[in-house]
Design a binder for these strands. Structure first.
Length: 726
DNA sequence: CAAGTATGTCATTGC
DNA sequence: GGGCAATGACATACT
């Protein structure tokens, strides 16, 4: 019955409306898809490389490479154990995870990143003394980790029941509704109607209430006055770390964010959002930078060298790696450090610079991963060694830079998606309200008015039985509850054996006679847009049943009914049509023809009867059509709300991801510093960070290699993704 | 009185 | 080809 055209039209309409209402494309899936793998790798898989590092066996290895055995004493041993346990703890780092598995994934067709094994340097061999965290253990860990995520997410309120499938369900509902108005659906609508009417004032106050509800979660930007989620600053801080704000704050946004920003059109004021974001970032830049530098270098906070150094590495990398490149799915070995498992997840990112997607590249990639190179990008090495002096430089600076760059790109995505503080908080509020899927969750005035409109159109009566009447009319999908003359008409028609109001109320009455049982509730429905019966019927209707009434009231009623009669009813009366308009309209064709044949009707009468029938049917069709339209709009509204809720939830999760990632990086960095700082050469002197660096290998061992070698490897690996990209 | 809304009606289309 | 449902467009009444 439904034509293809209609489906297409409605589908396109819905799609268009959805897009326009949402305003911006929700790329969170893409983001998550690309974002998740590294995290998972960090958490689940390759991170074992860290834990497998067997520092407690340093003595043996160091012996062979010229480090004096005496330099590794028991203290070092236990320290290494402690560090090792800390590193292992990274595996259980709590990173929110949800139904990300459901998101569309992309596989990066690009090959693996291969590299050469370090040929020299100190090897910190692994031994059986370390726990094996590979193999089955990973699975256990994964489940544990995910459980931890879930718990944390629940604590954060970031876990929402999947709402996927709603759209599909709605589509089905819509489809069915076009042919037969589902009774339960109507009942629901009508219940909602009732609620809305009962608590109409609530709806009006909703916005303010929601605003109040939002208040606790909001922070107000001191500069812009805009409010943003309380957790947002934490997120921004991670970004702030990545931004070399002290060196060239404006350059980064321009260079990094503009490519994507300009590439997408958003109804939101991106510029304003960016300004807000930058203000937030700048507010936090100072404290984060100083604290981070302190942690990273164990240097006095006042040490300008170390502080500057912590910032300096960011600049060249950020400039070299633009988001534009990242969006091309280019590889960066930096993340391969964390994510040898990336190839096991069909999620090669198109947005993040991490993708050793070839499954064979795991060992080679990871084995060749030059930790020092990661931590000391070439640009950094050159400058840092010169400027930072003998003091421990930032071996993790590069890693952090890259990762932070990702954060920037993610935030850029957030901005691109129209994510601003106000919106996020709003969405957050929506997300908190867990009842979005039900119809009554449509707080929007429009939906309210729509519901009211739908109700009033079908039953404008204010009597006590209005709900029942409305429900009935809704159910009948005709939209017209009949008038006050129902009883009279029934009795009048009863003489003829026809009950027009029944068929009028229950348009499908002749299809489903059982629905007639609901008719008595309609006695007091008090308006009349229906086609009245023939004059004779009307006359008779007004007399006998109301004989107990005063004559004046009867006349008044007659006048009232007269006024309530439709034009066609008047015409029918004028033309002395011998049966009711309801019969004319609602009778099946056969019965209708039969009825006509029973009377000797003039051509004018026949014409009028046909017109009445046509108009009457069309009137009901129009009402049905409008009701359908209304339902469609309501469903779309609900879909939009659902999508917005999903978006808010995903953005929240993104914030959590970033926060966890930042913490993890800081921890790795500090551990690296601690480990490196405790290494001693044969003379018992510490190694210079400017000359040596630690490098993890695929087998879990850690090498202490000269920095020059590390730089070479880093450069080599850096070139490969670029070449492949071309 | 203008604007918005609700409803009826007509014309058209497709089943 | 008639009957009919659906629907866009317009008219009208009402708020």
């Amino acid at each position: 019955m439904l034509s293809l055209k209609k489906y297409l039209t409605e589908g396109l309409l819905q799609f268009t409306i959805l897009l326009s209402l949402i305003g911006v494309r929700v790329d969170v899936d893409t983001y998550l898809t690309s974002q998740l793998p590294p995290l998972r790798e960090i958490i689940l898989g390759p991170s074992s490389a860290y834990t497998q590092t067997q520092f407690h066996n340093l003595r043996n290895t160091l012996d062979g490479y010229g480090i004096h055995p005496k330099s590794i004493d028991l203290d070092n041993y236990f320290t290494a154990r402690r560090l090792l346990s800390q590193v292992r703890a990274l595996d259980r780092f709590q990173v929110p995870t949800t139904e990300v598995n459901a998101w569309l994934v992309h596989r990066d067709p690009e090959g693996s990143v291969s590299g050469s094994q370090p040929s020299s340097g100190l090897t910190l061999e692994s031994s059986s003394g370390l726990q094996d965290v590979t193999g089955p253990d990973n699975g256990v860990r994964e489940s544990e980790t995910e459980q931890g995520f879930s718990e944390e997410l629940e604590d954060l309120g970031a876990v929402a029941p999947p709402v996927s499938g709603d759209l599909t369900k709605e589509d089905i509902d819509l489809g069915a509704g076009r042919e037969i108005f589902d009774y339960s659906h109507r009942q629901k609508e009508q219940d909602v109607d009732k609620e809305l009417r009962d608590g109409g004032e609530q709806e009006d106050t909703w916005p303010s209430e929601s605003a109040e509800a939002l208040a606790p979660n909001l922070l107000v930007d001191g500069e812009t006055g805009e409010s943003f989620p309380a957790q947002f600053p934490a997120d921004v801080s991670s970004i702030t770390e990545a931004v070399p704000s002290e060196s060239e704050p404006p350059a980064l946004p321009n260079n990094l964010l503009s490519p994507l920003l300009t590439g997408t059109e958003s109804p939101f004021d991106l510029e304003q959002q960016w300004q807000d974001l930058m203000s937030i970032m700048e507010m936090q830049a100072m404290e984060v930078n100083t604290s981070t530098s302190e942690i990273m270098y164990n240097a006095p906070s006042g040490d300008p060298l170390s502080t500057n150094y912590s910032l300096a590495p960011n600049t060249p990398i950020n400039q070299n790696v633009s988001l534009h490149q990242a969006s091309l799915g280019g590889c960066s070995q930096d993340f391969s450090l964390f994510s040898p498992e990336v190839e096991s997840l069909p999620v090669a990112s198109t947005l993040l610079p991490l993708t050793p997607s070839n499954s064979t590249s795991l060992n080679s990639t990871f084995g060749s991963t030059n930790l020092a190179g990661l931590f000391f990008p070439p640009q950094l090495n050159g400058t840092a060694n010169d400027t930072a002096g003998p003091e421990l430089p930032d071996p993790l600076g590069g890693l952090l830079d890259e990762a932070m760059l990702d954060e920037i790109s993610l935030m850029d995505l957030a901005i691109e998606e129209g994510f601003n503080a106000g919106q996020a908080s709003q969405l957050e509020e929506e997300f908190d309200s867990d009842s979005g899927l039900s119809l009554d969750s449509s707080h929007s005035p429009s939906s309210l008015s729509s519901l009211e409109g739908s109700t009033s159109s079908s039953s404008s009566s204010s009597s006590a039985s209005s709900s029942a009447a409305s429900s009935f009319s809704e159910e009948g999908a005709v939209g017209y509850s009949s008038d006050s003359e129902t009883l009279d008409l029934e009795e009048a028609e009863g003489a003829v054996g026809y009950q027009p109001e029944y068929s009028k109320f229950c348009r499908m009455s002749y299809q489903d006679p059982s629905q007639l049982s609901c008719l008595p509730y309609l006695e007091h429905v008090g308006h009349n847009h229906t086609y009245n019966m023939a004059p004779s019927a009307l006359d008779s209707a007004n007399l006998p049943p109301t004989s107990t009434l005063k004559k004046g009231s009867k006349e008044k009623q007659a006048d009232f009914l007269d006024k309530q009669m439709s034009r066609d009813e008047h015409r029918a009366r004028a033309m002395k049509i011998p049966f009711t308009n309801d019969k004319i309209i609602n009778l099946p064709v056969e019965e209708f023809n039969e009825l006509l044949s029973k009377y000797q009707l003039s051509e004018a009468q026949l014409s009028l009867i046909r017109d009445i029938r046509r108009r009457g049917k069309n009137k009901m069709a129009a009402q049905n059509c409008r009701k359908r339209k209304l339902d469609t709009i309501l469903n779309l509204e609900r879909d939009v709300e659902d999508l917005q809720r999903d978006k808010a939830r995903l953005l929240r999760e993104k914030v959590e991801f970033l926060r966890s990632l930042r913490q993890m990086k800081q921890k790795v960095q500090s551990l690296y510093q601690e480990v490196f700082g405790r290494l001693r050469d044969e003379n018992g002197r510490p190694y210079s960070p400017s000359q040596y660096a630690l490098q993890y290998t695929g087998d879990g061992s850690v090498l202490l290699i000269p920095r020059t070698l590390a730089d070479q490897q880093a450069r080599r690996q850096e070139r490969k993704p670029k070449d492949r990209r071309k």
